[in-house]
Design a protein around this nucleic acid. Structure first.
Length: 600
DNA sequence: TTAGGGTTAG
């Protein structure tokens, strides 16, 4: 636990109430009303000076009002300075200070004040906890949050609905969804906000199926959803690729009027961009009223996922011409779009001018995008130099981007060098090991593959399991590599076995190096044939009529062999196949993929 | 005086 220390003024320097000259009461009321109405920090400072000149700073009510005015004029430093000079602040003032600091950048101050409140002897109350918990949530400080939870019980505030909602939110934002759910389940009264906190917690912790289930539970409990709940639902549908469910919620958003809100319209747009083709996304964008920078950025991101980098740039230009100022996320979307489409020069220009021209200095994400742009295009040396010269401390993801490029271009020497760096950084992300393992496997260096596997095991790391999802009959069906637990497994495997010779006739040659086990080629072929996306595609093809699109969502990158296989499958069957992997969309039709094979 | 929030690399 972090020990929060507070440094109060020595008591001798504090103003003393008893030594003050009694001021005129009408003058006090006048100053108090002035303090309430003041809206500019400059005027407030003038008034504060007047208060000191007239020796009114000894009055508790005046000091409290002045502190509140500093908070309302966003002068937090002055408010804190003044607050520290107040001998015995009221609970109300403590809470107001803790709340004022419960914003990004000042969360730690908020907790410092909470700690000092405890030292002062005043008990925290039902207003204190929501603000202090919000600060723990903002810092993702679970240990501190658990202590606050215990304090809320000790001080008898744990039954308050606001405290409970804040606890649910804190546990979710600290990644402990299970405890959040326990708190939720024991709540005496669950209102819309607590339901929404839990739904949003599930959504932001990647529990997409639970998000949708919980949203349904809320509706069964006769709690009517609002726009905030809908935002989480669209996030979950997008992640699951659950187009039909997303469409149903889109209908709900239209009926209830929530779609008029630009945040809901953006969430719907984003859901479509992750579930389907661009036509409907563009329709959403064109029909949205009051488009802000987030909505424009979502449209730019969407062009990026679908490999239309030039359209992403055109949309960016339109946004700027419409008078909107791009933010960090806009540039991340834009650079990622350049990367997916191989627009190296365009990306380089945006990257080098974004700070001076648009006032957005490149952050780690932007550097990672630029490394990716250069790396994918084969400019590995330039990418390495960019990392070496960057003014920020490169993190593991930066080296990970470059390692990804080494995998694409088969640069084993650089790949090993980067892998050493990643080991030094002690990254817990198993994907980097898998990338290096892929580079070794592609060169049949099975001893090195085995060595890596051992290192992963020593570090208690496991390769993230590949999962493919497909929505059918309002249900999400999940497939993992070689699994046989699905009710239609027998038929799925038979289907793939029948498809295999047809694929070979059309020139499919299995790339056995993508099967990482040191096993015989024939077995490798079979291991590849049962990758999760192929099982999901077979399930989709078996259960839908010709002409209907097949939509798959995969949590990892699609492997090169599956990519080739699906291109050939799209030549055989009368279906368009969409696969969204962890990076982007692949739109397979008549033997061609929309990514132009650029990602391999 | 109290809460939940749409875009973001690999």
């Amino acid at each position: 636990m972090i020990e929060y220390r507070f440094f109060p003024l020595p008591s001798s320097k504090r103003p003393s109430l008893s030594s003050s000259t009694p001021p005129h009461s009408h003058e006090n009321s006048h100053i108090l009303s002035l303090l309430k109405s003041i809206s500019h920090s400059h005027h407030l400072k003038q008034l504060h000076a007047k208060i000191i000149t007239h020796s009114l700073q000894c009055l508790s009510s005046i000091l409290t009002a002045t502190t509140l005015s500093y908070i309302s004029t966003n002068s937090l430093d002055s408010a804190l300075l003044l607050f520290r000079s107040i001998p015995n602040p009221s609970s109300f003032l403590w809470n107001t200070m803790i709340r004022a600091c419960a914003t990004p950048g000042d969360f730690y101050l908020s907790l410092l004040l909470y700690s000092n409140l405890l030292s002062s002897g005043l008990p925290p109350d039902k207003f204190t906890f929501p603000f202090a918990l919000k600060s723990c949530a903002g810092l993702s400080n679970l240990a501190q949050g658990i202590q606050l939870h215990q304090h809320s019980i000790s001080f008898g505030c744990h039954r308050d609905p606001f405290v409970n909602a804040a606890l649910v939110d804190m546990y979710c934002k600290c990644g402990d969804v299970c405890t959040a759910r326990q708190v939720f389940d024991t709540m005496p009264n669950r209102d819309l906000v607590s339901w929404t906190s839990m739904i949003s917690g599930y959504a932001h912790n990647g529990c997409s199926i639970e998000t949708l289930d919980f949203f349904n539970n809320m509706q069964f409990s006769n709690v009517k959803a609002n726009r905030v709940g809908l935002l989480s639902v669209f996030l979950a549908c997008g992640r699951l690729g659950a187009l039909r469910k997303g469409e149903r919620f889109h209908g709900y958003a239209i009926q209830t009027g929530f779609l008029e809100d630009i945040s809901v319209a953006t969430a719907v747009l984003d859901m479509y961009s992750k579930c389907t083709n661009l036509g409907v996304v563009r329709q959403m964008f064109d029909s949205a009223n009051g488009k802000d920078v987030v909505c424009w950025s979502a449209m730019i991101a969407s062009y990026g996922y679908h490999g239309l980098g030039k359209e992403a740039i055109y949309t960016f230009d339109q946004m700027v011409n419409a008078g909107l100022k791009p933010n960090h996320a806009t540039f991340t979307c834009l650079l990622a779009a350049c990367s997916h489409s191989g627009l190296v020069e365009e990306g380089r220009i945006f990257f080098t001018t974004m700070g001076a021209k648009y006032g957005v200095a490149p952050n780690l994400n932007h550097y990672a995008c630029m490394v990716d742009i250069l790396g994918r295009a084969g400019k590995l040396q330039e990418a390495e130099e960019l990392i070496a010269e960057m003014p920020l401390e490169p993190d593991s993801s930066m080296w990970g981007s470059l390692l990804g490029a080494c995998r694409i271009h088969g640069d084993l020497e650089l790949g090993e060098k980067i892998a050493d760096r990643l080991m030094e950084l002690d990254s817990e992300y198993s994907g980097y090991y898998v990338l290096l393992s892929n580079i070794y496997a592609a060169r049949s260096r099975w001893t090195d593959v085995e060595k890596l596997r051992k290192q992963m095991s020593e570090r208690r790391m496991r390769k993230e399991q590949g999962i493919s999802l497909i929505e059918f009959n309002h249900q999400i069906h999940k497939f993992t590599i070689g699994e046989r637990s699905h009710p239609q497994s027998v038929e799925i495997y038979l289907y793939l076995q029948k498809l295999y010779p047809l694929m070979k006739q059309l020139g499919y040659v299995p790339m056995v190096e993508f099967s990482l086990h040191d096993i015989e080629d024939e077995n490798k072929e079979m291991a590849l044939s049962y990758h999760s996306e192929r099982l999901a595609i077979a399930f989709g093809l078996m259960n839908t009529s010709p002409g209907s699109p097949i939509r798959i969502v995969k949590n990892l990158r699609i492997c090169r062999d599956c990519h080739n296989a699906i291109k050939i499958i799209s030549q055989i069957v009368d279906h368009v196949i969409f696969v969204r992997d962890m990076n982007r969309f692949h739109h397979f039709e008549n033997g061609v993929c929309s990514c132009g094979d650029y990602c391999f």
